[in-house]
């Protein structure tokens, strides 16, 4: 593990780079990074549920869609400022997730995966059905919010910063949650639910609340995407979105906070690279990428970085006595 000081330095450096990007990248590239942050928020939500709490979800695209539509309908119907729609989407998705989590308590493993999958299947069709609110298959066209207070930022730059700010706040809250008493209980349920109960953890309540918080994160991500893309349509929230989020979660590192960011980069950029490599069979290329990543980094990108970090520190420690002696240096083997 990194020390707290090192972690703070890494986070601040990353933030400094992130703040510089809008002034160096094209609007299109910047939009891609905004999308990465949105995915990262959604994946952190999924990680809480699947990685930390051990509840499988193949349907988080549904919460993403609900968040996006709550935001879009509020803006389109009632002219609510986009800034207000984001917390509202979060709170409503928290409630929806909690309520879905209650019956889900009776489902284990693959059965829960199937139940969430059916949610992902159903939500786009339900959205089409309530055409009066949602615009049906046509969806809703929104306007991109522009920077307030006469800030010299174009809409893409402004949205980038809004998304970055939401990401920072949600990751800070999430890290506090997962590293404290509640996070320990969430993991305890995953590791051994009987022992967790014996320690006093109300696992039914904790599992439902974790479901709620997870859905809230993914819902906020959806709400941000509505403004970033300035358009919502049911078919952009199909089952494939749910699978994509799960891929990002696994590739980034399941029970990891930073892993959510790595996973988001993966699902945003690797499909594009696959497209560049082969126009004819991009998904075959993507599949190869997936398999290679899982083979090389069985604990996700975050897990691989952690291992490298530990190894680097060990070899630094090991080199101190070696440098005093004249013996030929040998790569330290992991013990």
């Amino acid at each position: 593990m990194m020390s707290r000081g090192t972690r703070l330095v890494v986070v601040l450096l990353a933030l400094a780079v992130a703040c510089a990007l809008p002034f160096t990248l094209s609007n299109f590239r910047l939009f891609q990074f905004t999308q990465v942050y949105i995915y990262a928020i959604a994946i952190l939500g999924l990680n809480m549920l699947t990685g930390y709490n051990g509840q499988f979800s193949l349907g988080h695209g549904a919460f993403y869609a609900i968040g996006a539509y709550i935001s879009a309908i509020m803006m389109d119907r009632w002219n609510v400022h986009y800034g207000w729609t984001i917390p509202v989407a979060g709170v409503l998705c928290l409630v929806v997730g909690f309520l879905f989590g209650l019956p889900a308590l009776r489902l284990e493993g693959l059965y829960l995966a199937l139940a969430t999958f059916s949610l992902a299947l159903a939500v786009p069709q339900i959205l089409k059905y309530f055409e009066h609110w949602t615009g049906g298959s046509q969806g809703l066209v929104l306007s991109k919010p522009s920077a307030p207070f006469g800030l010299p930022l174009n809409p893409d730059q402004w949205l980038y910063f809004v998304t970055l700010a939401v990401l920072v706040v949600l990751f800070w809250l999430g890290a506090n949650l997962l590293r404290g008493r509640v996070g320990r209980a969430i993991v305890a349920i995953r590791d051994n639910h009987i022992a967790a109960e014996a320690m006093g953890v109300n696992s039914a309540l904790y599992k439902s609340l974790t479901f709620g918080v997870s859905a809230a994160y993914t819902g906020v991500a959806g709400a941000l995407s509505a403004s970033a893309i300035a358009y919502v349509a049911p078919d952009s929230f199909n089952v494939f979105l749910s699978i994509t989020l799960l891929i990002g979660s696994v590739i980034g590192g399941l029970a990891s906070i930073s892993g959510a960011i790595f996973g988001a980069f993966f699902i945003q950029f690797v499909p594009n690279w696959a497209q560049d490599i082969s126009k004819a069979a991009p998904w075959a290329i993507f599949g190869v990428f997936l398999i290679v990543f899982m083979y090389v980094m069985p604990f996700g990108i975050a897990g691989a970085i952690r291992l490298l970090w530990i190894r680097a520190r060990r070899s630094r420690v090991a080199q101190v006595p070696e440098s005093r002696e004249t013996a030929p240096t040998q790569a330290p083997t992991s013990s």
């Binding site: 506090n176 008493r181 509640v182 993991v187 305890a188 590791d191 051994n192 967790a196 320690m199 953890v201």
Partner: peptide
């Protein structure tokens, strides 16, 4: 809890006598 460190295992043992909830923890 096999994935948790020894110290974390012991700290989970204190769950029943500690109070912080989701919101205050976050």
């Amino acid at each position: 809890f096999p994935t948790q460190t020894v110290r974390q295992n012991v700290m989970i043992g204190a769950h029943s006598r500690t109070r912080s909830d989701f919101l205050s923890n976050a």
